[in-house]
Design a protein around this nucleic acid. Sequence first.
DNA 1: CTGAAAGCGCTTACAG
DNA 2: CTGAAAGCGCTTACAG
Lengths: 358, 358
Amino acid sequence: MPKQQETPHRLHTKPTSSGRITSYDVARLAGVSQSAVSRVFTDGASASAKTSAKVKQAAKTLGYRPNRLARSLLTGRSYIVGLVVAYLDNYFYPDVLEKLSKSLQQQGYHLLIFMAAQTADNIDNVVEEILEYQVDAIVTASVALSSELADKCQSAGIPIVQFNRIQEQSHLSSVTTDNFQGGREIAHHLITQGYQSFGYIAGWEGASTQRDREAGFRSGLAEYGFDVSFRAVGNFRTEQAHEAALQLVNSKNRPRALFVANDAMALIIMDVLRHKAGLAVPDDIAVVGYDDTSPAAWPSYELTSYSQPADVMVDKAIELLMYHIQNDQTPSRQVFVPGELKIRNSSNMLASKISERE
Amino acid sequence: MPKQQETPHRLHTKPTSSGRITSYDVARLAGVSQSAVSRVFTDGASASAKTSAKVKQAAKTLGYRPNRLARSLLTGRSYIVGLVVAYLDNYFYPDVLEKLSKSLQQQGYHLLIFMAAQTADNIDNVVEEILEYQVDAIVTASVALSSELADKCQSAGIPIVQFNRIQEQSHLSSVTTDNFQGGREIAHHLITQGYQSFGYIAGWEGASTQRDREAGFRSGLAEYGFDVSFRAVGNFRTEQAHEAALQLVNSKNRPRALFVANDAMALIIMDVLRHKAGLAVPDDIAVVGYDDTSPAAWPSYELTSYSQPADVMVDKAIELLMYHIQNDQTPSRQVFVPGELKIRNSSNMLASKISERE
DNA sequence: CTGAAAGCGCTTACAG
DNA sequence: CTGAAAGCGCTTACAG
């Protein structure tokens, strides 16, 4: 029976009309070769004005757009950047994500998102998956990779930029503020304000930011002979920050001034102090955060905080990214962006006390 | 000179060692065909345990992972979902993004992010770009597409799910709460509380959420013979919400109760009322928001708000997405997720007034 | 400037 | 179960 061939094979005899419009369809309509179509859509490739016009017209008629995935197979460039991120509930990161995405978009890149838990073992699986998408680069925000995986990416030629995290052992590029210096300035500020006893609420102890902020804070206190008399761990999580605040409230010797490792926790803690424990900030206890996210400036909080300028950090991250994408196997760089202590009412003892003393 | 051929052509004579490890490399090491390697990495394809073991061992040795982009060329599935989003500074959306990303990740999909301004003309360009990436579907959060583009995506077989926005003319699937009903319940709540004059701060007037919330609010008031006596536009932007609040404060006949089109604006406005105008909430003016984002529940605000359950909405969006990806040209669906009025202190007149009256 | 052709890394009927 | 081969949609030397 000659009819047996009627059902076409799915793979080998795909009819032109089925689904996607390709450069061949455009070529046919424009009366040029497929190569010509490709050239019209390639920056810097040679095509006469006449050809270009015909092709563009045909493409418009058909609604053709080049397939970036097919292109990437040939060029080795996907124009996809993988972003690994863990803490979207810390408002610093949505801000970073927005700015990073917009800037990359302007350069023709787009972000592929991978959410991860903060613990290191999980991150590696996530990154392995990213590699399947042939990303041109990876940004890890607030998470750390194993050094084995970092090596693997390096040998695969996929640059990695760490955002707001730094790792000595793996030689990865990074953008951070100087967290040690930030912690130190906070200590000096509180001492200058006249406070004499100090507490610290830690973030996740695997994080370089947590480590450096605490070390800087302790160092800054030690310079003037002070120490941390209360410490609890909030792990950068709101529920745990809440618990840490309760520990603080119930502690025998509550410190007079408290440094909390980031704003997200500091705001929660201020609320507990004021509304659950009936304490006044700063009159009963001063509070300082880190990140200077927008709620820190809200009149209900007026939280003193060390700013991490997201826009500058993002600019630097993109510079690093482009630098590594364009130059293979270049040495990594650690970029430190200057931060700044934003002094607000939550730590302002002098404003009230000095006037009393005068 | 025979030396002239020394530099290899970049394209045609790529040495095996240069860069990526392919299925051919694995095949060679494992002593099987390239097809066999492919099958081992394809769910449901037939491969003997022996072959599978050899291939997996070789892949591990070489650090091989299949190239998803190449795969997608054949299968027509990229496992990429495009997300268009405009308001990451409204904390509702980072929450949505996180949940959406995590859920999709579990099903092997990943989100490619496109930031857009809220105005419609811009969105179309963004979506055109998304299509180049051969996404399997598009989620538009808080933005609206032109109906031409919606048609184009439909004919290209790319399903679109609108998140927190609804559009009658273009027949797109959508997930929203019932914003009209939400506005109406808020009106009834405020009336029940005993308030008698009402203000409204609008979001961006091109947004269906804004339109429906306002219409519902006005309808709910009208049922009891009330009307809106003050109205200003905040456009869902913090700076403009701030200005709207100042207008309110300086208005001749300030309303006794205020509905603000979303929490992000409502929090800003509460701060202006309390800290710039010295007004008490709810004693001088009641405030209600929409979204029930986490800051609404913070003790400093205690903002009454209509909840949009992000997790349920995301679950529904993913159901719609998968339904449309798996079934071509299926009719669109409008899913309404039940919301709930969360009554907090910011609108609680009775708590104080009743006790006074008794 | 232009077309024919090879090939990017993969999947999948086909025929053993 | 397995290998040889075609082809997804594109870019890019090559030779006119």
